[in-house]
Nucleic acid binder design. Structure first.
Lengths: 331, 331
DNA sequence: TTGTAGGCGTTATCAC
DNA sequence: GTGATAACGCCTACAA
């Protein structure tokens, strides 16, 4: 029992293949009778048009590739889930490309996406250079990363976020405020570095001392814990700006293990503000990214690129506002 | 600058299309000279074979659909990520079908997957009935759900897990042990119900009183919190078996809000044991599912179905062992 | 309002 | 060893 094709439907409905195709695509003139006959036949055979054959004709595949480092981080999970919702509404299917922190894997995925004729790509990784993406020749939008002049970037307002986090701690009385997280000052390709800049800007503006401790985002939790422990042991710290919520959780965890009281001895601010963290860690003060808005914008921009790939970018960079989620427990 | 095709490579290499195809598929006799000429041309043009056209010819699409309720739950996220790894190793790409708890959405995704000629499906939802899946005519394997006689089920040993969780609490001295989570005794389609059976089995074996409180898995955290609060207020409780770790976190959260000490006043055991929870909540005792093994088995079984769709199932049900992850803090 | 014919990019079956 | 050529399932001028 092989999958039925257009011609089977046509035979069953007693019409030609063309007519069936017209019904499917709602194209040209058709009598109501014919339509219903065809629909009935399709129903009866549980017919699904072969999307491969349609796309071979230049029709869109309605497939888009989403390249992110992982889905096990609640932030990415929620972002991808929102992207999925926005896409589903427009009949786009997602090919999930979990690239890890692995350039080779990302490269392979890029090739596969090309081979599968995806209509476009949403990229949220930082493994590959511009060239590979340019070579693909596909419409692309990027989350939180600078790919090339032809690729629009969507991110939250990282600078304000970093500044805001620092100012929250300052206002809560902290005077020894540390910055902990991914910061690669040498690499201006990464908008996330603006979080550090926001921190520095505020620290300088109130005349405090800068304390920057950098840990790669991709680093294991075990390493992060060790770094946190070292910071807390060796320095006078009363506030920590973390560049993501999970790192903030680790800070709280380690502090407690060391007998430090949060927020009495040390206060913590996170970054991202996922639903997950708001639900399971309402005690954490954090800078929330507008995840659904980011997702919608990414999808909208990608659709524009898909519909008109050669139009110059109206805008290269989109920064969406962050907001503080305050809790009295971590601060 | 349109994407190059087979014929372009052929021209550039000075050979026929057939030869190029042979090189790509490593098929038939070919001189080394020809091969290298063709490879060079492919490289130069950054040629990617159009996978649509190949599949139209009967070749596998190397696409598989994964249907799960969400990726924002760390358990599903980690399971899907492990599935992705196993698939990537065999050149399979994943179409992510985030079906929520929505039968209609799942139905639509099923149709799309058919239309896209996926090679197979891994299903982990509980929205749709057997018929819809049978109609699809696609090779399917299911996670933790009974779909039909033709669909193999992989799950962890839920019964032992439920029993183990209960016995852990008992051994820690609890005598008023409650069961909290998804349990639909009327519906034996759901292997997860075995967790309840394991609980009941142990409770009966030691002569304690059964206390079963059922909350749908799909219920919001807010509702779950309200239910937990009610249980803790109205009953004498010294131990709670939760059917998933996130619910267990809520129990701890609510207990603390109510001034109850965990584990002195009430002890909690979770279920799932993701890396995420082990990292960010090492204090939680839980029954861990063997996520990587489940993922690998799902993919292996699916590949068998794909390669030989009509072979009767060697085995219908696969139950992988669980293990306790003990912590002294939640118990 | 409906049907015929050619083609999308690739593979496979023939010949040469 | 290599090259024509007919499919694969569908879409779309062009006819009728």
């Amino acid at each position: 029992m092989t999958r039925p094709k257009l011609i089977d439907v046509a035979k069953k409905a007693g019409v030609s293949a063309t007519t069936v195709s017209r019904v499917i695509n709602n194209y040209g003139y058709l009598s109501e009778k014919t339509k219903s006959k065809v629909f009935a036949a399709m129903e009866e055979l549980n017919y699904q048009p072969n999307s491969l054959a349609r796309s071979l004709h230049g029709k869109a595949t309605k497939l888009i590739g989403v390249i992110f480092p992982t889905i096990t981080n609640p932030f990415f999970a929620e972002l991808i889930e929102e992207i999925e919702k926005a896409c589903f509404a427009d009949d786009y299917k997602l090919i999930l490309c979990d690239a890890g922190y692995n350039a080779q894997k990302e490269k392979n995925y890029l090739k596969m996406l090309q081979a599968n004729q995806v209509d476009g790509i949403i990229a949220g990784t930082h493994n590959l250079g511009i060239e590979d993406y340019n070579k693909s020749g596909l419409p692309i939008v990027a989350f939180d990363r600078n790919l090339s002049d032809q690729v629009p970037i969507v991110s939250c307002d990282n600078f304000s976020g970093g500044r805001l986090a620092t100012s929250e701690l300052y206002q809560a009385g902290c005077r020894h405020i540390f910055f902990l997280g991914s910061a690669n000052v040498a690499n201006n390709l990464h908008p996330t570095n603006s979080r550090l800049e926001g921190y520095l800007d505020f620290i300088d503006s109130v005349g405090l001392t800068r304390h920057v401790h950098s840990v790669a985002y991709s680093e294991s939790a075990a390493v992060k814990k060790a770094i946190i422990k070292e910071i807390l042991q060796k320095h006078t710290v009363d506030g920590i700006v973390c560049t993501d919520d999970l790192t903030a959780l680790l800070v709280i965890q380690i502090s407690q293990q060391m007998g430090l009281q949060v927020p009495q001895d040390v206060k913590v601010v996170g970054f991202d503000g996922t639903n997950f963290l708001q639900t399971y860690h309402p005690e954490l003060t954090t800078i929330a990214q507008p995840i659904p808005e980011i997702a919608k914008l990414l999808v909208t921009l990608l659709q524009e690129r898909i519909n008109d790939p050669h139009q110059p970018l109206k805008q290269k960079r989109y920064e969406l506002p962050v907001k503080v989620i305050r809790s009295t427990t971590s601060m």
